[in-house]
Design a protein around this nucleic acid. Structure first.
Lengths: 156, 156
DNA sequence: CTTAATGCAAAAATTTTGCATGATT
DNA sequence: AATCATGCAAAATTTTTGCATTAAG
């Protein structure tokens, strides 16, 4: 969601358009892979709006969560993080993360293979899945190559 | 992991076997679906060992996380929760949760359908998946029935 | 007897809240 | 001009830490 749509979105809801709200959403939107903590959002927004307070960041996060524009995520690094929601047609969102256990980088991916799983669960358990959150832990390509050694030679 | 194995496990690692440690693990083991917060663990353990302190609960949680006997989970209710790790042959663990958006209940499930997804990712991205965490949000059978109405009659 | 673990209380870190001020409509 | 949102600081949570005491090996 860009600045213009966000502005209209707020107006439609009778909410006021402030630099702080735009700043927080833009901080999270700038990179699709930006999974920022409240403090990190605060630091980013302060570059442009030094007068913002941390309390406003927290209040804005709450607001954006309620508006379902962002999601809270947990990448198991001990921090609470937030990311913008993918704006699929149906308003669905898919939090798919590949978390490298070696270098800690987080890669996002899209995939519809989970639909098979969801169908299976519906048939088996009668549970109607409307959303999902998936985190896969492993080793990214580069870290695998580093671990294997530069030229793939066996030891000893 | 039962009390006996846990005791041996601690001894093998040169760690001391204490009532507090056993109490915390047992609180989490008592129900496979017990996703307790630190405070809740504290309350459960205190029934048996009233002298335990909250700090010890936190320290024990840290220990059990490091020993990979428990996992931290986030069910998006604003609390940090913990659960015992499934003891598969390979030491793998599978955090699969069905979270009912209507009643809030959390159902655990096992499934190997994700293996297909993991293979796909390996082929596509070169990312070697060694673990995963999956949460599915939706409406459980009972809540669906409640929403549909008691006898399935249409309105109007 | 030695060392590790605990309980308590204090401290640190994180998040929320009250209220006067300031910005948006 | 009316109202909502903000900043600040204080309060409430949640988690961690220091240290004397207790318990395990």
């Amino acid at each position: 969601m860009d600045r213009e749509h966000f502005t209209q979105f707020l107006r439609d809801k009778g909410l006021k358009v402030t630099n702080q709200r735009i700043g927080v959403l833009e901080a999270l939107s700038d990179s699709e892979d930006s999974h920022l903590t409240a403090e990190e959002i605060y630091d980013v927004v302060r570059l442009k709006y030094p007068e913002i307070g941390l309390a406003t960041v927290y209040r804005t996060i709450q607001l954006l969560l309620e508006l379902q524009l962002i999601d809270q995520i947990n990448l198991d690094d001990g921090c609470v993080r937030y990311e913008v929601r993918g704006s699929d047609a149906g308003g669905q969102h898919h939090h798919h993360h590949l978390i490298c256990l070696s270098c800690g980088r987080v890669f996002s991916f899209n995939g519809d293979l989970l639909e098979t799983l969801e169908e299976y669960i519906r048939d088996k358990n009668g549970f109607q899945v409307v959303d999902h959150k998936v985190q896969l832990y492993g080793h990214c390509k580069e870290c695998q190559e580093k671990m294997d050694g530069p030229s793939g030679t066996d030891m000893g």
